[in-house]
């Protein structure tokens, strides 16, 4: 039985549409996460991924539904849920250490300056930035800034780490190093992580479960992919694992075509319950699923898949 540490229960979010009425960005999302789990959400732009993360952070509120964390409904932001922002969001008038110390002193307001600085420095060391601790964000590279953002989030000993495309603004080399570091830190500390990403490889490398969202407006959680790769995977051999390409292909197939056509899949009679999105394991092929893909995979789709594939590869190599 799964422990429901985080439980997203039927949330939806509406925005006023231009010209009156409202647009439902996503509708009736149900999902749960257990303690220590690393979940990545993948979906096209505009499916409301960031809004879901903001709701988890308490920065935004759902139009309907609730999110329950550790038995309590979320009512606003909390120091228990640290956010790593896509744009690092460092305060430019503080040094790297000052930014982390600001978080530490918010977490433990009664601590002395020395205690705060010691804790902040420990977080800075964790991300390997002790040499640049006294520099201002303007003097740091993109990767270093994001490291400070990660140190700031980890410094407050959060129960849950929320990451909004944390590596998307980085170059490929820095991204790889930072992914390794974040993965190690999360495994060592048993951190519960909710991450948004566009990068399929990143999701497969980091996450235990990958949530696939259909296109917005009216986005839904189509299915949750259980990552079949072993816990001890490393960057160097992850792509040699026999389960790697089935998972990758499954996700890319979803992003290329099924994220658009998912509603028609349901209309065609596919059994699907929004309250209980299916947990699939592409490494253990379900005959039905495979057959569907094979039938749907005409020349057109194969081409499209190939296109996304080469794009992703090009992105990795640049």
């Amino acid at each position: 039985m799964q422990d429901r540490y985080i439980s997203i229960e039927g949330i939806s979010r509406e925005y006023p549409a231009p010209g009156g009425g409202t647009t439902k960005i996503f509708d009736d999302l149900w999902m749960s996460m257990s303690r220590g789990e690393f979940v990545a959400v993948i979906g096209h732009s505009g499916c409301g991924k960031t809004t879901v993360l903001n709701i988890l952070a308490g920065l935004d509120a759902p139009s309907s539904g609730v999110v329950i964390v550790d038995g309590k409904a979320i009512e606003g932001p909390s120091l228990d849920r640290a956010v790593i922002f896509q744009s690092h969001a460092l305060l430019p008038w503080k040094t790297a250490l000052g930014n982390v110390a600001y978080a530490v002193s918010s977490r433990w307001p009664r601590w002395s300056r020395a205690e705060v600085n010691a804790k902040a420095m420990a977080a800075i060391k964790l991300v390997g930035l002790e040499a640049a601790a006294d520099r201002s964000p303007a003097q740091l590279s993109g990767g270093m800034k994001q490291r400070v953002g990660i140190a700031r989030a980890l410094s407050i000993d959060p129960k849950i780490l929320l990451m909004d495309e944390p590596f998307s603004a980085l170059d490929a080399l820095t991204r790889g190093t930072l992914q390794d570091e974040v993965r190690n830190i999360c495994i060592e500390t048993g951190q519960t992580v909710f991450m948004i990403t566009h990068d399929v490889d990143e999701a497969i490398y980091l996450a235990d479960k990958i949530v696939l969202m259909t296109n917005g407006p009216g986005a839904r959680i189509a299915e949750i992919v259980a990552n079949p790769l072993p816990m001890g995977r490393t960057r160097n051999d992850v792509h040699r694992h026999p389960a790697y390409y089935p998972v990758r292909n499954h996700i890319i197939d979803f992003l290329v075509s099924r994220s658009k056509s998912f509603d028609s899949e349901i209309a065609a009679g596919k059994p699907w319950d929004s309250r209980n999105p299916p947990l699939v394991n592409p490494a253990i092929p379900e005959p039905a699923t495979l057959a569907q893909v094979a039938v749907a995979a005409g020349a057109e789709q194969a081409q499209a898949t190939q296109q996304v594939f080469t794009q992703a590869q090009r992105r990795r190599t640049t």
Binding site: L59, P77, L79, V83, F85, A89, L91, I156
Partner: peptide, 25 residues
């Protein structure tokens, strides 16, 4: 907005937020 959000996620009180985030910004 992102600096305000940093203060919000750190549960910084309104007065401290005014002096440590809004005023310097």
């Amino acid at each position: 907005k992102e600096w305000i959000n940093v203060a919000r996620t750190l549960e910084v009180g309104p007065l401290r937020k005014a002096f440590t985030v809004i005023l310097p910004a």
